[in-house]
Structure formats: structure tokens, C-alpha cells
């Protein structure tokens, strides 16, 4: 799975993308916890992020994700386009 980091999440993680191995079936909250294990500094934005899984927004919670190798998961801090 390819994880993409943007804006503040990229600053906190210290990189913009990386490949991460996680269980194929995982809730979105468990996925967040796995990513925070790799980058503990991300913990501070827990209440201010959503995921984009294959470019679809997913909230952190009980939703079960079925991930495939090569799937793209992005960490999306609050947006500010326009």
C-alpha cells in the first residue's frame, strides 16, 4: 500500500510518500494507528484528518477497508484550497 502525506501531515511525517505493509482487511482507525506507530508525531492531528483511499474520502472509524497491493491511501489534513 502506498501512503501519501500532504501539508501538515507531510511535515510531521517528514516525507511525502512511502510503501507500508498492513493487513489486507483493516478498519480505517486501525490503519491510522498503524501509521502513527511509524510516525508518532502524527498523533497530534488525529482529530483533524481523514483518509482518501483510492481517492475517495474515508473518515477514521470502524469502516472496514479491503486494501490491495498498490492501493493508494492519502492522509488528508483540513483542506484550504480556493
Amino acid at each position: 500500500m502506498l501512503v501519501l502525506y500532504f501539508a501538515r501531515s507531510a511535515e510531521l511525517a517528514g516525507l511525502r510518500s512511502e510503501t507500508v505493509s498492513v493487513p489486507r482487511q483493516i478498519t480505517s482507525l486501525q490503519l491510522w494507528e498503524e501509521i502513527v506507530k511509524i510516525h508518532p508525531r502524527l498523533a497530534v492531528i488525529r482529530d483533524q484528518v481523514v483518509f482518501a483511499v483510492q481517492q475517495e474520502y474515508v473518515l477514521l472509524g470502524d469502516q472496514l477497508l479491503v486494501l490491495h497491493p498498490g492501493d493508494e491511501v492519502a492522509i488528508i489534513p483540513p483542506i484550504s484550497g480556493g
Binding site: 500532504f6 501539508a7 501538515r8 488528508i76 489534513p77 483540513p78 483542506i79 484550504s80 484550497g81 480556493g82
Partner: peptide
């Protein structure tokens, strides 16, 4: 998903719509 960073004289901030 677009982000804006405001740069001030001695700090910066990520904006939130």
C-alpha cells in the same frame, strides 16, 4: 484536496477552510 500555507514574517500557518 488542496492546501494553503500562509507565510508571515517569522512564522507560517496551514489554513483551514
Amino acid at each position: 484536496p488542496i492546501w494553503k500555507k500562509e507565510i508571515y514574517e517569522d512564522e507560517y500557518s496551514w489554513k483551514e477552510n
